[in-house]
Amino acid sequence: MIETQDLSKQFHDFMAVDGVNLTVGAGKILALLGQNGAGKTTTVRMLTAILHPSRGSARVAGYDVAKNGHAVRAEVGALTEHHGLYMRMTALEYMDFFGRIYNLSPALRKSRIDNLLEYFGLAEAAKRRIGEYSKGMRQKLALARAMIHEPSVLLLDEPTSAMDPESARLVRDEIARLKSAQRAIMLCSHNLSEVEALADQVAIIYRGKILIQGGLDEVKTQALGSPKYIVQFASAWDAAGLELPQGMELLEKTPTSLKVKTDAPQQTNPELIRRLAALSAPTLALQEEKQTLEQAYLQTMAAARGIEYAQ
């Protein structure tokens, strides 16, 4: 549904996006992460056929963005950086305006507008001017607008940034529903816990280049190395006599815990448990140290800048 090859955009001497290769299939969510100015918005603008690529190509919903811009725009629903709401219009008028642009019949328009406004909790405020809306309400309306034509591809820039937890949950549920309805979704977000909850794939972009991409676990492993495990003891225990299984490396030792690293936990962990039992160690738990996407992101960014990542 979204496929880019060497996608690049140059403004004057500045390379905003440089050789980006991405693929997002139907029913998948790709999260594009990066600092402000890293090239996320430029990438989204190329995928909505607003900007012409300087090099490379992109196909969205089967159409080439450079050659079939009109068709691409008809198939894409975009929540842009600026929500672009007309403050003197009511939500109903605004949604109707976009519904007409997408050539929806009056009956279909009405049912979709009613459903979307109802879902996002805006039905009661539908006849109020958008200028009177709160920030979160505006964001929900912008998102509803992006969905009015039931696009096969959604490009969402910070979909929940201004929302209260309840509204953010609503939006996440809707994104998950769209994913199960076989939509291809690209999500640009700084909310990494949200990305972990929603995304199938992650790509981290820095100064226009993709530094790292893949599935969530893949990205974490690429950025943070092998999974780490912590053995906790019920009381202080001297681990001097313990020999770690082959392929396991000791990272940290305290009287009540051990921290180890392993590339093959399926083989090494059961063996470690056996050896601890043989030594009558007061083992309380063996658990994986949680590696978050945030850690992976910060580690990747630190490496890109050539500085050490302080956890």
Binding site: I50, H70, G84
Partner: peptide, 14 residues
């Protein structure tokens, strides 16, 4: 200036 043009530009207009 208000950024309202961007959603219009993502719509299927020539």
């Amino acid at each position: 200036e208000r950024g309202t043009i961007e959603p219009l530009l993502t719509a299927p207009f020539d």
